[in-house]
């Protein structure tokens, strides 16, 4: 009984168990769900959400939110093919430029939130609107095909049978977990999220950490954008849109408080896998778009009831 209670107090573990349960039941009942290839494919899709949600987790932990991640993904996916210099055979220059661009957008978000005191939800929302307009001007609404070899390698390569995207996700996870739990930086983020005033009075610079966090969120969104581009081989307006809500849902399903100060990326990882699995299961049930939308919403609500409750204050 004690063990059960402990599990319920530990949202990351709870979400992991939930994923394991869903996979087990689905594998036993649905033919082909439990195949190695299918599970690997699910993880590959979850990797994109997981990487976007890495930045989102950090920002939400600090009490903010980033509504521009979808737009940043689209920006990197569309601009990367355009800014990759043809003279560079490895394609790394294009990747570096695209990541710098994404980080710069994040930095602008941070600057607006830190210096102009615009609430993050407005700042990032306005940024998303702004980027959406800019993109159509730049790209003209048509799809762009990628020829950058490094990006294609990232999307298609399978060293030791594991897709490069999953490997990238593992690296990102380790880095983010180290930042949150093993570095003074992570302690500062959490302190700012739990009580900004107390954190400031204890000598934590609000402006510097805000800038850093939104820059990180932009960077991770850019990374996810490159991965999406590599997997799709094409960038188009709207390619990043679904990832905005997915990233927030993954964070909340992982037990991180949307109010900041409490949570961990260890919960976001199973949260992302759970979301992808849910979507896959809904696709298996052959339903009309309306019913699919209803099922997705109800499932998220049901999952929230299990893992996303706010403590009574």
């Amino acid at each position: 009984m004690k063990a059960v209670k402990a599990v319920f107090r530990n949202p990351p573990l709870l979400t992991f168990l939930l994923v394991a349960l869903v996979w087990l039941v689905a594998s036993l009942t649905l033919r082909g769900f439990g195949a190695y290839g299918h599970l690997r494919y699910l993880l590959e899709l979850a990797a994109v959400i997981g990487i976007v949600a890495a930045g989102q987790t950090l920002v939400i932990l600090m009490g903010g939110i980033d509504l521009s991640v979808g737009a940043v993904i689209t920006v990197t996916a569309i601009l990367l093919p355009l800014i990759s210099p043809a003279a560079d055979p490895t394609g790394l220059v294009g990747i570096v430029l695209a990541l710098a661009l994404a980080t710069g957008i994040g930095l602008l978000n941070g600057a607006g939130a830190a210096y102009l005191r615009v609430p993050p939800i407005i700042m990032t929302l306005a940024m998303a609107t702004f980027l959406q307009g800019l993109l159509v001007i730049v790209a003209g609404g048509s799809a762009v095909t990628v020829s950058n070899p490094a990006v294609i390698l990232l999307g298609q390569a399978r060293p030791l049978g594991i897709p490069a995207g999953i490997l990238l996700w593992i690296v990102v996870s380790v880095v983010v977990l180290l930042i949150i739990h093993r570095m003074p930086l992570g302690a500062r983020f959490l302190a700012l999220g739990a009580n900004p005033l107390a954190a400031r009075l204890s000598g934590v610079s609000v402006a510097r950490n805000t800038l850093l966090l939104y820059a990180l969120s932009g960077f991770f969104a850019g990374l996810a954008g490159i991965l999406v581009l590599g997997m799709n081989r094409q960038g188009y307006v709207g390619i990043g849109d679904p990832y905005l809500l997915m990233s927030i849902a993954a964070v909340v399903l992982g037990g991180t408080s949307i109010l900041g100060g409490r949570g961990t990326y260890a919960g976001t990882i199973p949260g992302a896998i759970l979301l992808v699995t849910t979507t896959a299961l809904i696709t298996v049930v052959n339903a009309s778009p309306g019913w699919r939308s209803i099922m997705f919403g109800s499932l998220i609500l049901a999952l929230l009831l299990i893992s996303g409750r706010e403590a009574r204050r």
Partner: peptide, 26 residues
């Protein structure tokens, strides 16, 4: 009553409501 954050409940709710609208009038 269930103490869930409004932003995420209305997000999930928006999927359900969109679904109902799509079923009523595809």
């Amino acid at each position: 009553h269930l103490r869930l954050p409004a932003i995420i409940v209305t997000l999930a709710g928006s999927f359900i409501i969109t679904g109902v609208a799509l079923i009523l009038l595809p």
